[in-house]
Design a protein around this nucleic acid. Structure first.
Lengths: 332, 332
DNA sequence: CTGAAAGCGCTTACAG
DNA sequence: CTGAAAGCGCTTACAG
């Protein structure tokens, strides 16, 4: 008694049963106006009774469009990525398009494989939510399918759509917040060598300069090194850290907890991305918030525009700061 | 200079360019043996030069199979769901099948919509990773497409494949662990009314009985209520909590931290699901671990078996316990 | 309003 | 080994 044990009904079956031509059934089920209401109702009743569903392969084949777009994301687990996806999905819903996802698991080789496979599915277009995709590879794929990349500040080849957040503004918000609390020895914990991470580091240095704090500016290579600067005797130990990502901030706070360093008592911490967990951990994490869902909608809207023949563009979204308990005025 | 600005090359184009028939090209690109090696190489060269890719819609239409299976998951954000998905993806890869995902966001209505849409894509089968899908609805869909459900212990209609973890064994592991540490006043914090959550609650009560601790057994309705029982004066306050899910455990630990109750000093906590965050939070969370990736592979293998005509079955995976810092011997 | 016909790009017997 | 033909289930002009 397996599913599909008997052939699924086709347009032909419905036409025969209703005593009309295939074309008429086609028009009726698609809600075309040029069909007499009574006829239409009768046809739809028959279609319903037979359990008719239009065959997507045949439909796509003849129309040259599947109304299906793919989303390739770098990390299924990250709240950032999932929020962007939700923005894409909701926007797609209002456009009558279907969204299918695949996960690249932060692995560039896998990204390529998955992208190849997705394109092989006959998608109308693809949104890549990844800051780390190789730009030459993206360029190759863009020749085969319309592409929009979310989360990559650096410019890609023309013809590729882009949506990114303004990392400079975001990092500036973080540093200004700390400075306004009274911090001066604010250090930066950088992320991976992704373009976005680089932009954040640059913005950190630039903002420290603007605030006249360049003498205190320091890019600490890693958590180990940072812990090393926190010896109780060190008078010039940093009092605040702005991290390139929430991932790093979470890891740092874990290590600090293990080492007995109080947050925000001894050290204030700011993250970047406002991941889901930022509000659930303790202390809750102050973090730069990208308008993720909005970025998703922008990406999908741009993709549909491109399908309609519009040129690709680079849209930039402005971040805000979510202030929580991991930041406070320095103790002295 | 949009992508696809000129028609993608077809089998016909390759045939004309190579001076052979369409059928021969079809056989050659699919690696059929009955094509002379030289001819084959020449055809593949032409195909490559023209950038030919077989049209998936036409291929699916004529074969009646798309080699594409869908995964509908309840929560993109949960490490449990993503691990199951990874198991599915990896197994699919070895079978030459493509996997596409969609997110139901813990919303039964959305689950239905997404499922409808996925099926409309022409998938060969669907894996639903959800403990909360309505069983009548699942039954309806199973009539249209082969279906495997992961994470639902209760029996569904025949013809639907199932993969679940043994919640009774899992909860028993949790309670025995606490009892062996010396806890007696072990309470249970239940989850949503999902079948899996119900099974865990039952198993808790049963295990407490087996251990002769039935007098201390207590299902606390919620975190508020639990906090109420922790007044310092209360001599019979619980010393340990086993939670129905990690989600609840994480929330509980957050509230306890805010209330100044030490974990595991005053209260030991065990979760269920071993989410990603369990090892990253502080204290790290002792949790029942389902073999999630294995469950994913089992699901996909079962689905392909069903596509080959096999009957649906219900496979049960055995959980283990990941012991971390949120559990310790009671203080007195 | 309604029907007959062509064609989307492929695979699969069927002849040679 | 290789080619001509039919057909998968649909949509889209094109006649009536």
């Amino acid at each position: 008694m397996g599913a599909k044990s008997h052939r699924a009904p086709t347009l032909n079956d419905v036409a025969a049963e209703a005593g009309v031509s295939k074309s008429l059934v086609s028009l009726a089920v698609r809600g075309d106006v040029g069909v007499r209401p009574e006829t239409r109702t009768r046809i739809l009743d028959v279609a319903d009774r037979l359990g008719y569903h239009s065959n997507p392969w045949a439909r796509s084949l003849v129309r040259g469009r599947s109304q299906m777009i793919g989303v390739l994301l770098d990390d299924l687990r990250s709240g950032y990525h999932t929020d962007v996806v939700h923005g894409i999905e909701d926007e797609a819903e209002t456009n009558g398009m279907s969204v299918v996802m695949a996960d690249a698991r932060r692995d560039p080789a896998l990204l390529r494989t998955r992208l190849e496979r997705m394109i092989g599915l006959g998608l109308d277009g693809v949104v890549i939510v990844s800051g780390r995709a190789d730009s030459a590879m993206i360029g190759d794929f863009a020749r085969r399918v319309p592409l929009v990349v979310v989360g990559r500040p650096a410019e890609l080849s023309p013809g590729i759509g882009q949506v990114s957040n303004d990392d400079r503004t975001g990092m500036r918000l973080a540093v200004h917040h700390l400075a306004s609390l009274g911090h001066r020895r604010i250090v930066h914990l950088p992320g991976s060598p992704r373009p976005a991470a680089v932009a954040r580091r640059e913005a950190y240095l630039e903002t420290m300069r603007e605030l006249g704090l360049e003498d205190h500016a320091s890019v600490v290579p890693g958590i180990e090194a940072l812990l090393g600067t926190l010896a109780p005797s060190a008078a010039d130990a940093p009092t605040a850290v702005c991290c390139a990502t929430d991932r790093i901030a979470v890891e740092l706070i874990g290590e600090l907890s293990d080492a007995g360093v109080e947050v925000p008592g001894r050290l204030s911490i700011v993250g970047y991305d406002n991941i889901d967990f930022a509000a659930r951990m303790r202390p809750t994490l102050t973090s730069v918030d990208q308008p993720r869902r909005a970025m998703g909608s922008l990406a999908l809207r741009q993709l549909t525009d491109m399908l309609d023949g519009a040129d690709a563009r680079h849209e930039i979204a402005t971040p805000t700061l979510a202030i929580r308990r991991s930041t406070a005025a320095p103790e002295r």
